[in-house]
């Protein structure tokens, strides 16, 4: 309990961590696949049916690709620059090459 109060409350972290932000106008797009599948009157009908499937079933399954599409779009649009991503991959490989125990001792 006392220990956590030792750490600084606010401000940029030491050690040169860049202050980033997850904010982006693209994120609003995520609301579409959250809200649309919850509007039940939209799909609570038999017709139009598709391949013998009532609307209720095929439309709700069609919301799956809608969700995939929006998350892919938001991911691509908010991705970091190629240089930063290369640095991230390098860090993963570097860590993977070293066993945990050694990493532990290095710190």
């Amino acid at each position: 309990m006392a220990s956590s109060s030792r750490s600084p409350a606010d401000g940029p972290a030491r050690g040169g961590t860049p202050v980033r932000s997850d904010r982006s106008p693209w994120n609003w797009l995520l609301l579409v696949p959250i809200v649309v599948p919850l509007i039940v009157p939209l799909y609570n009908h038999l017709e139009p049916s598709l391949f013998g499937w009532p609307l209720f079933y095929w439309l709700q399954l069609a919301f799956v690709p809608l969700g995939v599409l929006t998350t892919v779009l938001v991911y691509r649009a908010t991705r970091r620059s190629p240089e930063e991503r290369a640095a991230a991959r390098a860090a993963v490989e570097r860590d993977a090459a070293r066993p945990t125990v050694t990493r532990d001792q290095e710190r």
Partner: peptide, 13 residues
């Protein structure tokens, strides 16, 4: 700290 929430793998933290 605020910066913790957006930290990336390659960060020193």
């Amino acid at each position: 700290a605020e910066a913790d929430y957006t930290a990336e793998r390659e960060d020193p933290t």
